[in-house]
Amino acid sequence: MDGILPLWKPKGWTSHDCVMKIRKLYKTKKVGHTGTLDPEVEGVLPICIGQATKIVQFLTETSKVYTAELTLGSATETEDAHGDIIEEVKVSRFPTQQKIENVLKSFQGEITQVPPMYSAVKVAGKKLYEYARANQTVERSSRKIVIHEINFISKNEEANKIKFNVTCSKGTYIRTLCVDIGKELGYPAHMTYLVREKTGTITREHTFDFETIEAACVNGNEQELLLPITEGLTHLDTVQVDEQTKQKVLNGQKLSRTDQIMEARPFKVMHGDKLLAIYQIHPEKKGEIKPIRVFSE
């Protein structure tokens, strides 16, 4: 059984919990998720099953869409509502909507972020949250991320809350974005709400909750919930091959580069609507292409 299960991850579950549950339901060990969601965050979590596990890294690289809420006036050690408050300031004058919109737009484009201490980023072979739990703070390198779009949704002045949506690249910490937006508005801040609305082309409307998935497995309809593997690769270019070349691709052979291949990034190789492999330009022989992943028939 091969394909992408568009799961709506519930609150209180880790992404790993979801993988373990799907392994039992689909009776296979070949299951992987495509981008960690914190336990208290719900939303779109595509689960790759069978041969689809070969594309996890490519689906992880796609942009994500979130709805988020930040609260002005207090900062926490975890940058969200689940950590202890480390700074508190009275919000004497809540920012105007125009001010909020201007600040949000200032984050659009390529920006840098410093990963939060409570994150799974590794420094010297150890995850940052392990240092944090031991009350240690370590030097963290900033990283470049891209905010493709960010828009104001609403504000609640009595509760000091601002809601917005954001389309961003992989590796973006929305918690940190909330803190940085708060700084630009003149107050400490933390994230109080987050939902992932979309991963790549997979939206909330595509997803199934565990209750629906369990019912489908009981009725023998679990295959019908799976999206084709190509749904996770829509951001990659496509090269079509003929029947003769198809066999070479399925055998994992290197091929001569064609005029169809313009960019160095990975691309899909297909025969009609059948996904055969993911190839890239050979790093040492620019006139050749080589397979990264091959999908058996």
Rank of each mutant, 00 (worst) to 15 (best):
G3L: 03
I4S: 04
L7F: 02
P10M: 03
P10W: 00
K11D: 04
H16A: 10
C18Y: 07
M20W: 11
K24C: 13
L25G: 09
K29D: 08
H33E: 07
G35V: 12
G35I: 06
L37R: 05
E40W: 06
E40M: 07
G43D: 02
V44L: 01
L45N: 15
P46D: 14
I47R: 10
C48E: 11
T53L: 04
I55T: 12
T60V: 00
T62Q: 14
A68G: 05
E69M: 05
L70C: 08
G73V: 12
D80E: 10
H82L: 02
I86D: 06
I86G: 08
I86H: 09
I86S: 07
V89D: 02
K90D: 13
F94Q: 08
F94Y: 10
T96S: 14
Q108G: 05
G109D: 12
G109Y: 11
Q113Y: 14
Y118Q: 00
S119Y: 06
A120Q: 11
V121Q: 14
K122P: 00
K127T: 07
L128F: 06
N135D: 15
N135Y: 11
T137H: 10
E139T: 14
S142H: 03
K144C: 13
K144D: 08
I145M: 07
H148R: 05
H148D: 05
N156A: 07
N160V: 08
N165K: 04
T167I: 14
K170N: 05
Y173I: 03
C178F: 09
C178N: 06
D180S: 01
G182F: 05
L185F: 12
Y187N: 06
P188G: 10
A189I: 06
H190K: 09
T201A: 13
T201K: 15
I202L: 00
E205W: 05
T212W: 07
A216G: 05
G220E: 13
E222K: 15
E224V: 00
P228I: 05
I229A: 10
T230D: 01
G232W: 04
T234F: 12
V239R: 04
V241E: 14
V241K: 13
D242L: 01
E243I: 12
K246E: 15
K246I: 04
G252S: 11
G252T: 09
S256R: 06
D259W: 05
Q260T: 00
I261C: 00
M262A: 06
M262W: 09
V269C: 00
H271W: 01
G272A: 12
D273A: 06
D273S: 09
K274G: 00
L276V: 03
L276M: 11
A277V: 03
A277T: 02
I281R: 05
E284I: 01
K285A: 14
E288F: 14
K290S: 08
V294H: 11
F295I: 08
E297C: 05
